[in-house]
Design a protein around this nucleic acid. Structure first.
Lengths: 107, 107
DNA sequence: ACCACATATGTCATATTAGACATACGCGGC
DNA sequence: GCCGCGTATGTCTAATATGACATATGTGGT
């Protein structure tokens, strides 16, 4: 394949050259899941450190205990948005959140 | 208020002592928005650095150009989940993402 | 001026996530 | 044994985010 054509296709969104797109997708998905797991762990740790119950955190968030439980279990039905709001609600600094994310590195 | 009662109420989710709950909520919301803004900026920077168009990134994500545009504009209709997936799709490392989040500190 | 390309903005039907509720489980104190 | 308390899990309806599509705007080339 001519390199200019390759560049044009890549600009259009195609990963040219091999069958790796499928693999790439699942690898990204795995990284995403690991990231969620790291944040979930962080939520639980910070919550417990503050002596809060799931119900108490839920009330702060205007959410419910079951949702907090699912969140800490990194359930697929809970969004990153809710996790972040939780972390902020608990009082996590952006530095702490950043640290949690870096921890997701190890896989 | 007796301190044991205060502790009990706090465990139950009440922020005892003043009218600060409303303010606290909006402060958190502001931090959340700043965080989204920082990530949105990061998406655009990394995308452009790779010479990708919004449409190309959209195709990788299985999304659409309009959604990527809204994402980079930190539109309220786009979730953190999509932003994170985008960053991972672009090839951002967790370290880079962590750096973006720390940048949200300055407000 | 026109065209091709990238991006911005708005709308819509559908998919996903939300809080709520019920209920089960585990566990320490009585 | 039974409670009270915290947590886990499943299931509803309502709210929100989704991709898609249309279309506007801006920009560089011919």
């Amino acid at each position: 394949m001519k390199s200019d054509k390759k560049a044009r296709l890549e600009r259009a969104g195609w990963l040219v050259g091999d069958t790796a797109q499928f693999l790439k997708l699942s690898a990204q998905e795995q990284r995403f899941v690991e990231l969620k797991l790291a944040l979930a762990t962080g939520v639980r740790q910070l919550r417990e450190r503050q002596g809060l119950t799931q119900a108490a955190l839920a009330k702060r968030l205007g959410s419910s205990q079951s949702r907090v439980a699912k969140m800490e279990a990194a359930d697929t039905s809970v969004s990153l948005d809710l996790m972040m709001r939780s972390l902020l609600s608990i009082g996590a600094t952006t530095g702490e959140i950043a640290k949690l994310i870096k921890k997701a590195e190890a896989a």
